[in-house]
Design a binder for these strands. Structure first.
Lengths: 228, 228
DNA sequence: CGCGGCTTTGATGTTCATCAAGTAAAGTGG
DNA sequence: CCACTTTACTTGATGAACATCAAAGCCGCG
């Protein structure tokens, strides 16, 4: 039994610990730290030593780095289950990117040593972790390639559809990032992102109320994302 | 002792099997298949079921996919130790990219089931594999971002320096890919790649003799790669 | 209230893709 | 081995896509 631990109700448990026995989970949970972050908080700063195993329980975060020319570049946007620091947690001793929450978020921090022990003793857990890591990396690589191949309107459409289909599950949502951040994600200037959004509005594909976006012509949007 | 197996001399052994006992290695090697590919051969075709664990022993290969507009897109170029199919081997049942050799290459194919068994029984092996996978994914993601942030001259310089510093370890080398393939890698047109190379030649940064490239002004090339 | 950052639009110039046309190299069948 | 075909390479001209610069309105926050 897992005592003194609300991990029982944690929806991550099944996914992350699908192959771990109750005793191990209990040990792990007794050392866990749950932290809440307000929107815009720094969760991880580039250069920090990787000492923990962090995963995102609730919210939305951006992973980014500073390019040689001093601009922020968003590597990816992660939602729960896209474990925040799975990237490079095994390959590096320090973070080479920063993580900031885009909306109020909750992380669960586990002891890295315990995770390493689990890997060494529990083969099924290792296998699951390998699969998880592979999936996340694949997703980021594919996303990066998909974005690269598109022109500006296609890139903006891609991002909007990403939020609609994979984050908010609705055609109407509050953009969790600024126009500037969209630009930093898709590698264009802020002005052109705005211009493209205005075009979409003029073409009656979306409605804009500040940060609130409503996609009214999904078909056309998908078409632009694919062939724009 | 490892009998009937030239794996003894294989320089991969220490890296890949650093934590595996002799008995396990022997079992693994008895089921291995070593295959040689001429330049330009298809090693993996998109859509194939992933049944084996392939790694590149010798040579150079390109991983690519076909974009929705029908163009080839090179995801990355892999050299020995950048295990060919580590990408998505654990996350997918089929390849979602193709692999073709750029120069004469040799792969070593291991039984996937045996690898899975090793992961389950040998924690140190799992840990090593996690590290290896993480490193490779990180590299591809970083490379993709680095390329994306640059303008044309910067991208071409980046590629040339990649070949010089990380593949051939020389300022003079035979380009293993065509101008068209460079374009497919960095996301530009063939014409502009050629134009940029010609510019470099006019500026006395490189010399070009067909496929043979000689970088004569490394300093300037590095500067273009960083700030071009 | 006023400062700073975000947003928006327009004007301008740069970068890059596309089209066209020609040369060189490399493979192919007789 | 040579004529033939195809593919790779190269350069120029043109227009489209995009960045940059500039200016003004908006909004939140101390």
């Amino acid at each position: 039994m897992i005592a003194n631990c609300n991990c029982e109700k944690c929806e991550m448990k099944d996914l992350f610990f699908e192959n771990v026995g109750a005793t191990d989970i209990e040990a792990m949970c007794s050392n866990k730290t749950e932290t809440k972050y307000k929107k815009g908080s720094v969760i991880v700063e580039k250069g920090q030593v990787i000492e923990n195993f962090i995963y995102l329980k609730k919210g939305l975060v951006k992973l980014f780095r500073i390019s040689s020319s001093g601009k922020e570049q968003i590597i990816t946007i992660a939602k729960p289950l896209d474990f925040v620091n799975l990237l490079s947690v095994f390959s590096d001793s320090c973070y080479n990117y920063s993580v900031v929450s885009l909306i109020d978020s909750t992380t669960c921090i586990l002891d890295f040593k315990q995770i390493r022990d689990l890997i060494k003793t529990n083969g099924s857990f290792s296998m699951g972790l390998l699969r998880k890591m592979s999936t996340i990396s694949d997703k980021i690589i594919l996303q990066s390639i998909e974005i690269r191949q598109r022109h500006l309107p296609g890139r903006v459409a891609f991002i909007l559809l990403y939020f609609a289909n994979e984050v908010f599950y609705s055609h109407e949502f509050d953009l969790p990032i600024s126009r500037k951040e969209i630009a930093e994600f898709i590698g264009m200037t802020t002005e052109n992102v705005i211009r493209t959004l205005s075009e979409f509005r003029k073409d009656k594909i979306i409605k804009i109320y500040g940060k609130l976006i409503e996609i009214i012509d999904i078909k056309k949007m998908e078409q632009i994302s694919l062939h724009g």
